[in-house]
Design a protein around this nucleic acid. Structure first.
Length: 638
RNA sequence: GCCGAUGUAGCUCAAUGGUAGAGCACAGCUUUCGUAAAGCUGAGGUUGAGGGUUCGACUCCCUCCAUCGGCUCCA
């Protein structure tokens, strides 16, 4: 007799071998209908699986996160069957769920094209419509290997799987795939799906392996959820910084310099505001600022280890028979500055910042608007300190990072600790000490983080701050890297208390990371509606008609005189058109003036993204927006 | 770099082998208007570049460049 404990604590008795489906039916017909799988003692299982002995059981429905994921995984199988029925030569490799959907990696010589998606979807609808049972077959490892003997991908998957029992799932006759499961009970339960895209993907994510075709799909519980998801993607596209950069005249890219951003006048306003603020915060945190050359003798890069570890990403040039490299990082230059005179422990910690322009020759196909470019400005700094000061310095950088991010309105980010990569300099012992130091600093601040094994810089481990763009792609902004090797290579020293020369520890850090990337993410974060302190056009004066142009010019001049970024639309358009244009240009405030305002020395103020207008005395409005700018308010007030 | 797609006016997009077009933006004129786009006229193009097929190519083929979606790599 099975004793089944349900989530509410009640116990249900049933004969051993009763299926999860049977139990769901005993609990209620509605639940049984909604059920997609069960959780037995914490493990997800099919509805058809049997329950024995004393167990804890909960029924998973498609309303549960896990239920949705199971549905998506099953949908991947249905898509796989559809693809195999259209292209019998297709070999299935691996088909997991991802955020908002799933994909299936397929080995097939003929390219699957977007035009084929409809055909695939039709076939999927047929399979779903047939509502074929998805049945689990369990075999021993040996038997399983025999069953897939002519499929090298499946053999590989079995060899990578744990345990002695290998499972397959079939959809009625004609389709079977190696899979851990669980799955929905039948192909009719895979939701409202759509084939989204196809792209190449290396087998095992290894660039030296064969490139497979990865077909992406999505599926949702209801048609409405699918439509909402597709609408959300459309909305996200409007927030794309590449789209907004064009629309708001912030920056451009040109074939003459792929990966090199051209910042326009509007973009430069945002850029300069970011930097002004950045400088003020760094001053508060005890930093000084330097600037080092963009091109330096190639020898320097041999010494730093960049030649050996980073050459593929570097630009080189030759002047008068001398080889030079364009800097991909600022550290070697910073080290030369350090070496330009003697240093004492009394100076430590020395926090030396540099807004350094670096070039990295990224392979084509990796560029992405402002967030992945070949030339960018790092808000870099190198902190020289004693080993004892490491933890407090790292803590200080973390605090500085949080303060800066917060001012820009970023609260959603995640942190990773990256450890020793294959390509590296320095001994294992040094790597261990420095990795521990970073971990300790994070733990000291009570910060959650994820370990990113093998992803450190070649000279040391690092803490990275990551943030997502409008399409939920994650990008690294800030980084804190500990480095014991570079100071040694460059024979950096300081005179310690005991009058001996010692090698300092160096911390590389960037907070915004790349100013270009940061700006891109910032634009998307605000959908182009920048907070007033960053907005290229903080306000625009809109005269009702030409009759009010004089007053409008007077007001415009006054606002510019007090240092506000104010535009003027004295065009021949009607006021409605001027308002519409100001909205699409994302001016912060619209200042509407007609005869009424001219007579009373006032201004009708309308906030971006709002339909209300309020009347203000001019001075009153000025002091209000001045406060808003000084406070770096994220939302426009009124 | 790899797989696939795309490239037409400043921008967004039409034109399926037979004279390259629209909306917005731009210029001129009309209009002088009270809160999300007034009207007329005009200008604007070696259709990403180069080669090929053809009587004829935006359209078909090849090479290259750039961009987009992924993979790999990375701030």
């Amino acid at each position: 007799m099975a004793k089944i404990e349900l989530p509410d604590g009640s116990i249900l008795e049933a004969a051993d071998g009763t299926t999860v489906q049977d139990i769901a039916e005993r609990i209620g017909a509605g639940l049984a209908k909604a059920a997609v799988a069960g959780r037995v003692n914490g493990r997800l299982v099919d509805l058809s699986s049997a329950v024995n002995g004393r167990v804890k059981l909960s029924i998973i429905t498609d309303k549960d996160e896990e239920g949705l994921e199971i549905m998506r995984h099953s949908c991947a199988h249905v898509m796989a069957e559809a693809i195999c029925s259209i292209w019998p030569d297709a070999k299935l490799v691996y088909g997991p769920t991802v955020r908002d959907g799933f994909y299936y990696d397929i080995d097939l010589d003929e390219a699957i094209r977007p035009e084929d998606f409809e055909r695939i979807e039709q076939k999927m609808s047929e399979i779903a419509g047939a509502d074929k049972p998805m049945e689990r077959i369990e075999l021993s490892r040996t038997k399983a290997l025999e069953r897939v003997a002519d499929d090298s991908y499946k053999i590989d998957n079995i060899n990578r799987a744990d345990g002695d029992v290998i499972s397959f799932y079939s959809h009625g006759a004609g389709f079977e795939d190696l899979c851990r499961g669980p799955h929905v009970p039948s192909t009719g339960r895979v939701g409202n799906f759509k084939v989204m895209s196809v792209a190449g993907a290396y087998w095992h994510g290894d660039a030296s392996e064969k490139m497979l075709q990865r077909v992406y799909g999505t599926t949702w519980r209801t048609k409405k959820e699918l439509d909402d998801y597709l609408a959300m993607l459309e909305e996200a596209k409007k927030r794309d910084h590449r789209v907004l950069g064009k629309q708001l005249d912030l920056f451009s890219f040109h074939e003459e310099g792929p990966g090199f951003a051209f910042l326009h006048a509007n973009g430069m306003i945002i850029w300069n505001e970011i930097i002004d603020f950045w400088r003020s915060v760094h001053e508060k945190y005890g930093y000084v600022e330097i600037k080092t050359p963009v091109i330096l003798n190639e020898e320097l890069w041999h010494k730093s280890g960049h030649w050996e570890n980073y050459k593929e990403n570097m630009y080189f040039t030759n002047v008068d028979g001398v080889n030079y490299a364009v800097k991909p990082m600022n550290c070697p230059g910073g080290l030369l500055v350090y070496k330009s005179r003697k240093h004492s422990y009394r100076e430590f910690p020395m926090r030396v910042a540099e807004l350094g322009l670096v070039h990295r020759n990224e392979a084509s196909g990796q560029m992405h608007g402002l967030v992945r470019v070949r030339q960018f400005t790092q808000d870099d700094a190198h902190i020289f300190c004693t080993p004892k000061q490491i933890e407090s310095e790292v803590v200080g950088v973390i605090e500085l990072t949080m303060e800066l991010y917060k001012a820009f309105g970023f609260v959603d980010y995640h942190i990773e600790l990256s450890t020793k990569p294959d390509k590296h300099i320095g001994s294992d012992e040094i790597w261990e000490i420095s990795t521990d130091a970073l971990a300790k600093a994070l733990e000291h601040k009570g910060i959650e983080y994820k370990i990113n094994a093998g992803d450190g810089a070649f000279y040391g481990p690092k803490i990275d701050f990551h943030i997502e763009d409008c399409l939920k792609r994650s990008w690294q902004l800030g980084t804190i890297q500990l480095d014991f090797s570079m100071p040694e290579r460059f024979e950096l020293v300081y005179t310690d208390k005991d009058n001996t020369e010692k090698v300092p520890v160096m911390i590389h850090r960037a907070i915004l990371g790349s100013l270009e990337r940061f700006m891109g993410i910032l634009i998307e974060h605000y959908g182009g509606n920048m907070p007033l302190w960053l907005a290229p056009e903080q306000m625009r004066v809109l005269p009702i008609s030409e009759k009010s142009n004089d007053y409008a010019r007077k007001l415009h001049g006054r606002l510019k005189d007090v240092g506000l970024r104010c535009g003027l639309d004295a065009s021949d358009e009607k006021i409605g058109a001027k308002v519409a244009r100001a909205h699409s240009d994302k001016a912060g405030y619209m200042l509407i003036v007609g005869p009424k305002e001219a007579d009373s020395e006032t201004v009708g103020v309308r906030r971006r993204a709002s339909r209300d207008t309020k009347s203000y005395k001019i001075d009153e409005f000025i002091s209000k927006v001045k406060c808003e700018i000084a406070d770096k308010n994220v939302d426009l007030s009124l």
